[in-house]
Design a protein around this nucleic acid. Structure first.
Lengths: 146, 146
DNA sequence: TTTGATTAGTTGCTTAAACAACTATATGTC
DNA sequence: GACATATAGTTGTTTAAGCAACTAATCAAA
């Protein structure tokens, strides 16, 4: 058990995810400065639809690591903003396919640029080698717990 | 600018903080299994009070990286649970000093053990060297954005 | 010593997360 | 075909985050 000696003083920062909170806040701020009026949670749903449009709500749950009620309400809000629409599947009437509107399609380039720029702000002074290792660790943590 | 070539496909996992979400969920679950009936956010406030009792709400804001309304309401809830009490400072009547109750003092050992165990679950298979680098990266990100 | 700015904390409002309970549809089995 | 079970999605409730607007106390400066 290689982690038994994990030092207690270091515990808090790992658990609380201050870094990801900071990234989320900065991204939200950068959206706002560019007059992009969506939340980062809404953006995270759009992000997966830009990669593949017409996902079901369950697929969005898996992709965004959220539970079903969270996705129901995010889709509710995105629908109110006219950024997506629910389309009942003909094969399986339990399923809603979620499709981007043209308004949402037009957000892709701008918001991806903002997200990339935000990430550059966040990772300033970090080497690509360090990033690789950090990514491996975070992926490993995720796989251990998901 | 060493991060310009940051690959877009990798962006999402970094931004969304799925790993810290996973840790938070697991910690909450582990609390529940041990019949510890507090939220991880409440725990994060207690954590800093265990290190130094009698912090002001502003000091708790700084320590936990939360804004003032968030701390107001977390302290509200902790007070309702009889885990802390607000004591008006005599030096400066704007300030509330937050003190642990004996009930909260008694939660320290058990919950710290659960947190350490949760972190061991999370970091299973990750080497100490990798952890060090991941911590450096997360600290660097935090410093860049805070 | 009054005025202006700063600091500490609270309240209102909207969005979201977590969990349980629920409806509706589909599937598998006898 | 009928019944049990699983899957997709919704609703209700509590807790929390983020932001703006607010009150109260302190400090600074003329």
């Amino acid at each position: 058990m290689s982690n038994n000696q994990f030092k207690k003083g270091e515990l808090y920062s790992f658990i609380t995810g201050k870094a990801s909170t900071a990234i989320a806040r900065r991204l939200q701020k950068n959206f706002k400065q560019s007059n992009v009026d969506i939340t980062i949670e809404q953006w995270s749903v759009l992000y997966h639809l830009w990669k593949e449009d017409g996902l079901s709500q369950q697929q969005l749950c898996d992709a965004t690591f959220r539970d079903k009620p969270s996705i129901t309400r995010l889709v509710d809000n995105l629908e109110r903003l006219k950024l997506v629409r629910r389309v009942a599947s003909k094969d399986d009437r339990r399923i809603n396919m979620i499709y981007l509107t043209t308004a949402a399609q037009q957000l892709q380039e701008q918001t991806m640029n903002i997200a990339n720029q935000t990430l550059n702000e966040a990772l300033d002074g970090v080497t690509n080698g360090q990033i690789e290792i950090a990514k491996e660790v975070l992926q490993n943590v995720y796989d251990n717990l998901k």
